[in-house]
Design a protein around this nucleic acid. Sequence first.
DNA 1: TATAATAGTTAGTATTGCCTAACAAAGTAA
DNA 2: TTACTTTGTTAGGCAATACTAACTATTATA
Lengths: 225, 225
Amino acid sequence: MISLTEENYLKALIYLSSLAPGIEEKKDVGTSELASYLKLKSSTVNEMLKRLKEKNLINHEKYKKITLTHSGERNGLKIIRKHRLWETFLFTKLDFDWIEIHEVAEQLEHIKSEKLVEKIDRLLGYPNFDPHGDPIPDKHGKIPQRITKSLSAVNKGEKCIVLAVSDTSKDFLNYLEDLDISIKTEIFVIDKIAFDQSIKIKIRQEQFSLSRKVADNLLVGDKFN
Amino acid sequence: MISLTEENYLKALIYLSSLAPGIEEKKDVGTSELASYLKLKSSTVNEMLKRLKEKNLINHEKYKKITLTHSGERNGLKIIRKHRLWETFLFTKLDFDWIEIHEVAEQLEHIKSEKLVEKIDRLLGYPNFDPHGDPIPDKHGKIPQRITKSLSAVNKGEKCIVLAVSDTSKDFLNYLEDLDISIKTEIFVIDKIAFDQSIKIKIRQEQFSLSRKVADNLLVGDKFN
DNA sequence: TATAATAGTTAGTATTGCCTAACAAAGTAA
DNA sequence: TTACTTTGTTAGGCAATACTAACTATTATA
Ligand SMILES: [Mn+2]
Ligand SMILES: [Mn+2]
Ligand SMILES: [Mn+2]
Ligand SMILES: [Mn+2]
């Protein structure tokens, strides 16, 4: 049995080694890095590493980097799958805000019931991405291809649909909420300003302009699926 | 903050003091009684009682009985409300079996989010009873009147609808599953046998007979609401 | 390469929640 | 009322998870 705390360590290890923004290929993780991400002291993490190794969830030699074993990876992906399915459920079935879902999913991801996960998955129509556009691993741990095209890459005169965000900070999500931009929002690119790389767009007949930073963090595609 | 464990103690105290079968008016609870219900040692319970008292959730004097404070009762009822709402959700929205829902709800009842509870409540149409027929406390802690009429009290020639069960043991629920009897099942009483107090019934054109014990544990009404 | 900075480990402590063993109080019955 | 039984409490321990302080290994830098 993997405890709630252990599950969070596994999830963090997957995040830091392969999911965190800017990571191309798998990267090994250190004790302090993990500690700082989990907002714990490295001594605490060090102790947990021993337990996780004992349980065959990680590989770790004294003073060396941490890697997940197959079992650790599988189990971690299960939690990520649950987290993202619950976020999707909260967003699409219960009308939670984009901003609120993460915190509740952080709790729901630890509910132990294979059947529940599968039923929620089915209820949602086996979605590939969560409301932030993050890919939902399937029950075998396979992860759909992440969306990589940002709004900055869309040409003048073209339209696209918001599929994901690459920044999920409250600040950013709140700003998007203000702009009334969400998943599935259709954006038409009116103009691209060379001077400051901002872009002029139209959403639902309304025109306004977005900074380069915002455009970079909006991931888009041709259609929603 | 009330821990998961503390929440389970509060729920158990409410159950033993007022909800357990056969309890007419509120009854005080003892340490060993609570321990045996929770399958813990009384020394363990004794320690927790100190913590609960410290947190103003129970009243307890050395060697005396335990009673819940107002706060303890309110918090306990909140957990019971969540438990029963989740059971209803699992049963009606996800097609879980009557038998499976309790175990999963035992986990879900501890999810901390007022908003989630209210959204689930709304999604379900503010139900008054869970799938076992147990009353769901409203958000203020008010408990709907429990159903008390059993199938044994239905007269020959009358029909009724199953609203609840007074025994929620796996044995009983499994047996009902076999008989294809569930919440909302319509039962017509063909005859009542004086000899062994069994009753002859008709369900969906099929006739069979039920023992007095089964009939006693099926709670019925005229209509579902 | 020597030294300073960073990263990782160990030792010792706390809290929660659980246990066993020993004991004390309360309740029951001879 | 005394003795037995049941109930409740204390003391002492243990595992999981976290902390601080002190120490060691590795890495970076002068
Ligand atoms: Mn999230
Ligand atoms: Mn979590
Ligand atoms: Mn239940
Ligand atoms: Mn519970």
